[in-house]
Nucleic acid binder design. Sequence first.
DNA 1: CGGTTTTGACCAGCGC
DNA 2: GCGCTGGTCAAAACCG
Length: 487
Amino acid sequence: MEEAKEENRRLKSSLSKIKKDFDILQTQYNQLMVQHEEPKHISSKGHHQDKDKVSEREELVSLSLGRGLKSLFQPSGSMKNKEEKNKDIMEEAGDDKKIDGHEKGSEQGLSVAFEYKDLSNPNEKFDHKKETISLEIGSNNKTPSENSFGFKNDEDDHQEDQEELLPQNLVKKTRVSVRSRCETPTMNDGCQWRKYGQKIAKGNPCPRAYYRCTIAASCPVRKQVQRCSEDMSILISTYEGTHNHPLPMSATAMASATSAAASMLLSGTSSSSSSSVAASDLHGLNFSLSGNNINPKSNSPFLQTSSSPSSSGHPTITLDLTASSSSQQPFLSMLNRFSSPTSNVSRSNSYPSTNLNFSNNTNTLQNWSGGGGILSNQYRAPYGNISTHQQSPYQSIIQTRTVGSSFDPFGRSASSSSSHPTQSNHDHIGIKNITTHQVPSLPAETIKAITTDPNFQSALATALSSIIGGDLKIDHKVNRSDAEKSP
DNA sequence: CGGTTTTGACCAGCGC
DNA sequence: GCGCTGGTCAAAACCG
């Protein structure tokens, strides 16, 4: 009881800090908006300034929050005025924050779209066979943490639409292999799985287990789990298919990551005409894309072509986070933080097999939690430092929007002042890094190809949705968790 | 009792 | 055609 009370106090203080930070950000945003509006109204100097503005906008990544994802992907002509949208975002975010423990009508109704307004490279048709993506999540981290993964939340209409458009539902055949250090027999990706088979695969003494998603009876998603023969501490989970049902919040984080990887693969093989290998280092998320006959040459120390359990002969994209690098931290932190173990579904159900530690040994969690037992670490850590020295990704996202015209996520033209009071101290946040200049190793061409692909956008939207959704729900979940703890 | 896991059998694809 | 391998099926066992 004492511990619970103490933790409750801690969480309350964290909550108040978050609110405080949010207020500050909102204030800054309003100031910026005022500054932004003034010259616009005053100067009616004609087209060329407007033109500049338009072209500038086209260079920007527009991050939109809303409930209708589809609308966010509409052509820019039908889009709301950007400032208006910013306002909407802030208002909605504010509402969400203020709800604080209030269950919203639709738990996953919050959606985010990441729109990169460069339509010069329309999505090309996909014409590949079954493909495998390998997402390697290594960890030099040392503390257990619980992470959750999934594929798609119910708002991901865009991806669903795309699936319908794709010949032979190729997206469903896409595989995402996740490598992680995990002591437990299986990882918790937030989904519910039923084992339907087990095989001893050639060349690996460890049996491979086959799972089906049981959240929905008709869900086509399958998963293979196998230990790496070379390093038994590495668990290789290979996902295939796309969930056709709402996912628990805890499942959306991995869903986003893997979807992004899948989108990366698809966009890379379909739209990059110049090179058969697309590789990028999204500050910890390392993708390598390779075809059957491709010998991928990594230009990143983290880039690897992994041979996932069943990927032989298939094009493979590797998202390599196994290398020891601080740049991995953003992604791991992101997952750790927002894959809430207290998610409604994953916590309330009785599927222990779905509980996995994505990064078993995570130093970052120690920082977050400030110590404590393993269990309390697991449940406390993700929320621990959100309001301390580090800013939450949510705030980062808002801030990214706040600084609006000043940043160029893809290292192209950053037109105006890029300084922001709080921008300097959250490099650790993956999303943030994606949207700043800090990805020098990523060829602009590749990024362009990736980011203009609707699949990627969709996946990113899902990712952000899950992140923000998880963030916004944290308060509630924490409270609920506390409530559960107390008799 | 309902859902999950186990495990041997079966099937399909691929290479020789 | 044959054998190998990966993947799936389904009945029995197990579990809460």
